[in-house]
Design a protein around this nucleic acid. Structure first.
Lengths: 211, 211
DNA sequence: CGAAAATCGTTAAAAATTTATCGATTTCGG
DNA sequence: CCGAAATCGATAAATTTTTAACGATTTTCG
């Protein structure tokens, strides 16, 4: 309905999508924002607003949204129907995990190659030596780079990516990256999530499970 | 200084910590909120406030904070000096990656065991059959559970964990989990991060790198 | 010593996000 | 057909988070 969306709301959309797909697979045809909110333990108005932003047709009073349409609209909004190419640098455990994560295809992300210092093969996919990156990125017009190297090498890998024309970097290394203003970095920070979890757990234990 | 902290701020703390450790290793003794903010591209007041909440001694005008003290205070605040035990269920690629991620120890997290349907060995660590979990969790008083199984099995693993006395769940499966009110769930949602990245990239390309 | 520069911590304003309220619309059951 | 129940979409209030403004303190240097 409305094109703009907040960053927070954007992060909720994949949740809705997963949920709706599950419901849809269970045979649900129509679904209301109220139901989604209850099941996902979110505020009803928030869900309604989020869905209104992405839905083209809108919902109908009393019946709600048509699940299949809503799924389609969410996928479209999230760009899942518009595959983007990406490369990974760093084929350690994490890099390998991402490389063999089959689901990325459904998220519109196609990992076309992985690089590391020494070439090898993971899950049937070749790992290329790092110096092949520039050529490959420019030839295939890859704009997304995923960094999975140890923190001390992250910045140099980042610099290399920028030289190769990468515009968006998904950084799994726990360091801040310095990039030109036209390059965006999305930090994937396990420590940050862990911090939130631990903090909450601490309260939980301290309060003796009050609630 | 002040005990309360916002969730957002809490997520920034590990960033500061990584940054400060790097600087400290480079020989920096004193550091100001201004410098941190500039290097990390954050708002100066925000950084100052964040640091003020965790720092016991506070900073001094003109010189800033003593790096080593600030690091200590951050680690203490984040509970990194107070190790918590955790178990992983699901020893696929992601589970293995987490299991062999050496840095968790520095984050106050000690993964004491991993479980999966069939027992095996990863990185010198034994993977136990899932039915051993209840016994082990209760004996070792483990309160954190990490879910790395495919989405369709996440809820049942979650239920099992709750039965075992787990109080906090770090969920890497892209599904919402239903838990009793005294159990907390932290979702680690790769798709959500990817959505933010893609969305930003789209604007970037559309705007022709205006900025 | 004393003025200038840098930084701190606090208070206040602005912006973003979440939550509440309400009238309008659609379906269902009698 | 008509009233009750459910849901939508929109507007408004409340909350949270970020950013700005400012006086106070400490160091540096002429």
């Amino acid at each position: 309905m409305n094109g703009t969306i907040s960053k927070q709301a954007l992060r909720r959309l994949p949740f809705y999508l997963d949920y709706l797909k599950k419901k849809s697979a269970e045979g649900v045809r129509n679904i209301s924002a109220t139901t989604v909110a209850n099941d996902l333990k979110l505020n009803e108005v928030q869900v309604r607003k989020d869905l209104a932003t992405v839905s083209l047709t809108g919902g109908k009073p009393k019946t709600g949204y048509v699940a299949s349409e809503l799924i389609r609209d969410l996928e479209s909004f999230l760009g899942y129907d518009n595959t983007k190419e990406a490369v990974i640098v760093g084929a350690g455990k994490l890099g390998q995990a991402l490389l063999s994560y089959k689901e990325f295809g459904r998220y519109g992300l196609n990992i076309v190659a992985a690089f590391d210092t020494d070439a090898s093969i993971v899950d049937g996919k070749r790992i290329f030596p790092a110096d092949k990156m520039p050529d490959l990125c420019s030839r295939l017009k890859v704009h997304i780079g995923i960094i999975c190297v140890p923190p001390e090498h992250a910045q140099e890998v980042c610099d290399r990516m920028v030289e190769c024309g990468i515009l968006a970097i998904w950084n799994f290394a726990p360091v801040h990256l310095v990039v030109p203003p036209d390059v965006i970095v999305q930090y994937e920070n396990l420590a940050a999530s862990l911090a939130v979890l631990s903090q909450n757990l601490e309260f939980e234990i301290k309060d003796g499970n009050k609630f």
